[in-house]
């Protein structure tokens, strides 16, 4: 049953992340629904920059209680909404 739970929970995390990205970051003319799960967050994708990266760090801390401590993994974690959601889920599972 756990894979189904995981998938359901990831859907919820991704939706919440998209809402928070749109409401907190400098993304104009985009609704949460228009962000694809695998869109790159930086550069060619959503076009976010490192000012936005600070906000994502704060979103992870304040809304999900998760910190990114290992910058070796940072490049993968911050790649897309999907990778962020996976990191949030895995970290929270590890905290239980």
């Amino acid at each position: 049953m756990q894979p189904v739970d995981r998938d359901q929970e990831l859907v919820g995390i991704r939706a919440k992340l998209k809402e928070l990205l749109v409401s907190n970051l400098n993304i104009e003319g985009i609704t949460p629904d228009q962000i694809k799960d695998d869109d790159p967050l930086f550069g060619e994708g959503l076009g976010l920059d490192s000012l936005d990266a600070v906000e994502i760090v704060v979103i992870l801390q304040r809304h999900f209680g998760v910190e990114v401590k290992d910058m070796e993994k940072g490049r993968e974690i911050f790649r897309s909404v999907n990778t962020l959601a996976n990191y949030v889920y895995d970290t929270k599972q590890g905290q239980k």
Binding site: A53, R75, F78
Partner: peptide, 8 residues
Amino acid sequence: GYLGGVVE
């Protein structure tokens, strides 16, 4: 470094 050191 990655993201200009903002996370650190």
